[in-house]
Amino acid sequence: MVTQVILPRILQIGEGASQQLPQVLASLGCNRPLIITDKMMVKLGYTQTIQDCLAASGLSADVFDDTVPEPTISSIQAGVAKVRDGDYDSIIALGGGSPIDSAKAISILGKFGGVMRDYKFPRIVNELGLPIIAIPTTAGTGSEVTKVTIITDESNDEKMLCVGVGFMPLAALVDFNLTLSLPKRTTADTGIDALTHAMEAYVSQKASLYTDAQAIAAMRLIGPNLRRAFHDGTDKQARERVMLGSTLAGIAFSNASVALVHGMSRPIGAAFHVPHGLSNAMLLPAVTEFSIPAAAERYADCARAMGVASEQDSTDVANSKLMAELYALNDELEVPTPELFGIDRDEFFRLLPTMAEQALQSGSPGNNPRIPSADEIIELYKKLW
């Protein structure tokens, strides 16, 4: 089997990587960037820091800061208009997964036009939009190294999966210093999101030796360090390891695909505005339990990589320890159930058939080791409540 691997052309990782932005822009032949970010990045001063860094090298950058969590068709329109009206040769995507995902969509629509639905999977978008330099400020989505973006169509609450080389950033600057001020909730949600990426890439039916290596390395980094980063955000060693784990997990799932957790997660996020990482965290234990019978050895490998099972443990014992760990992790990181999150029970149960259908249409459940029926997805959603 031949594995095609798509990565950013430039990947800089480590403390201070974000400060190398001027040199990276120069190497790409770009000198008129637009910063796409959100208002929190402006408030925290990260945007100004990037502008100051550019100014020291004689560069300036306009800012578009109207991206929103879980980006929608309407939320990116002003950014698309700004790109079309401006003379920009590149985009600096600064923030968590939502600003980076927004930047990916704006890059394509700003250059080629059309509407977001035109670029929805199963179409593969290989056209190259404006070059993107991604600077992630969370350790979770892996969006800086993926050829994927997810944009919600608010007319029907569908989270549209858009895939292709055109959505891969040209460069990614992965600087764990930018995660030191992350609040606990964001640390937890994005961290479990990254763990989910690694686990799903490893058990995916599209996994390869290459993606296996990235996924196992990611689990080894995230498993022992996520709790440390959650309880002490200033723990630089833990932050660095979780951030690198997130990037490796992003590489793994971008090249092996995600599976059932993500397929079921998107409809919850779209219908009830649950942050993506949090809805993944809600689902991970139940979906793992459902899937283990079809890939017991693979899940046991996950347990060992995360450090919760030993090489001497049998497959069954390792998987028992894995399940105990996933439930314990959700408890310690204060992951709520849909009920505790505040979702209306009647509405949740009314939408179960629709959410199950949307999950299947996304294609992700088809990569799961155990492929569910719509009825089985509904039962998993009920178990989640």
Rank of each mutant, 00 (worst) to 15 (best):
I216C: 04
T315I: 15
N255V: 09
K236S: 11
D153Q: 11
E297M: 11
V115A: 12
A270Q: 08
C162F: 01
F121I: 02
L173Q: 06
P136Q: 03
L351P: 05
V163G: 01
V174G: 04
Y202D: 02
K206F: 07
R9W: 01
G363Q: 12
Q361V: 14
T152I: 15
A294S: 13
L34K: 04
I124K: 11
L326M: 11
K39H: 09
S18T: 00
F272N: 11
L109N: 05
A359G: 12
A61R: 02
V261K: 00
D193C: 02
I76K: 08
L352A: 13
S310D: 14
R350Q: 15
L283V: 07
K184P: 08
P338F: 09
I133K: 03
I133W: 03
A103Q: 05
T315N: 12
D235R: 02
A259W: 04
S60C: 04
L28M: 15
G250C: 03
S320M: 06
I73T: 14
T138R: 01
F272C: 10
S27H: 11
Q48L: 13
N126T: 14
L25A: 09
H197F: 04
V261H: 03
G245R: 08
S74K: 14
S18A: 15
G16S: 04
Q77D: 12
L326G: 02
D118V: 09
K321H: 10
Q214I: 00
G96K: 06
V242N: 03
E70Y: 06
L7M: 15
K236H: 10
P69T: 11
S181D: 12
A61S: 15
G166C: 05
T3H: 14
S90M: 00
I268S: 08
P131Y: 05
E200M: 05
R123S: 11
V308S: 00
T141L: 02
T288A: 11
V145Q: 01
D331M: 04
M355Y: 09
D212R: 13
T211P: 07
N126W: 01
A103F: 07
V308H: 01
Q361A: 15
M40E: 08
S373G: 12
I151A: 10
V274A: 12
L278N: 06
A256I: 08
E334N: 13
T190I: 02
L209I: 13
F290W: 14
L173H: 06
L326R: 00
S57K: 13
M116S: 11
S18D: 01
S155N: 14
I36K: 03
V203N: 00
I222P: 01
I377V: 15
G58M: 08
M41G: 02
A259Y: 04
R304Q: 13
G223A: 07
H273G: 01
T141D: 03
Q51Y: 06
I76N: 11
A171M: 08
N177A: 14
V63K: 06
C302E: 01
Q51A: 07
P131E: 03
A305Y: 09
I91F: 02
L260C: 10
E311R: 12
L178A: 04
T186Q: 14
T179Y: 03
A56Q: 15
